[in-house]
Amino acid sequence: MAFGPHLLLATLEGLVTSAVLALMALGLSLVFGVMRVVNVAHGEFFMLGAVLAWWIASLVSGHPAIGFLAALAISPLIVGAVAFAADRLVLRRLNYEPEATIVATIGLLYIIQQLALTFYGPQARPVDAPFTYRILFPWFGYSGYKLSIIATSALLLIFTWFVLTRTRIGLVMRATQYDRETAQAFGIPVGRVYAGVFALGAMLAAIAAVLIVPITQAHYLMGLNPLLLSFIVVIIGGLGSLRGTVVAALLIGVSDGVISAFFSPTLAKIIATLAVAMVLVFRPQGLFGSAAK
């Protein structure tokens, strides 16, 4: 294949990564923005979403699309419930202190990972894509499902943006983020907002996982890489900034796709991780964020 089509293919793959990454990073960013909690277990919510998707799809017979849609509807709900319980049982009791919550979410990471290994096993299992239509470019055929991931993710991002900026729920969330105590004084149930945001963040990760699982297969260790990538995206985009998160997800996803296509993937990861650590050291507000208040 010539260089041009090869680049197009790498870019498309990168866009698929970006689409999934943007959803997942948005969840991480919301949780950090509103609750000031760094959720190290976010990758495990992603993994749990994928594993549950396989389980749900395996219970449903008939056309693959039915199983997939059932997984897309139910898996995020279960993951959201797990996250809700984790917030009520653990994080709230820690008063959301940054260090204690990090340690606790590390604990949560190990618990979810080990339970997945025990009950799901070490195998990687796929979920059938809901449809197998291929779009034919002049140089290669490309999975229509992958393109639909990009579209779905874009719709979900627009929907989230709408909820955050144009509805009462979003207003309440932003008020809590801006000043927790004043929000409480105005009668906003801050505790419930926190639990809801934590659940919502986890659900976004689970949705991302269900979307990607027909391509990558569900595996109990699949959470770590997306977690690091989401950290990277959230940091580059500026913590708590929706637009920055999307732009950074595009940047990271596409460059990851292109670099991995032409260079060693390990080297690509090393360079990306190092670059982000340097961004955090020298420009803590992110490339697109504004300076801290």
Partner: peptide, 12 residues
Amino acid sequence: LLIVGIALILLV
């Protein structure tokens, strides 16, 4: 790892 995870949470 389950023990490690539970120990971390119970400790904090």
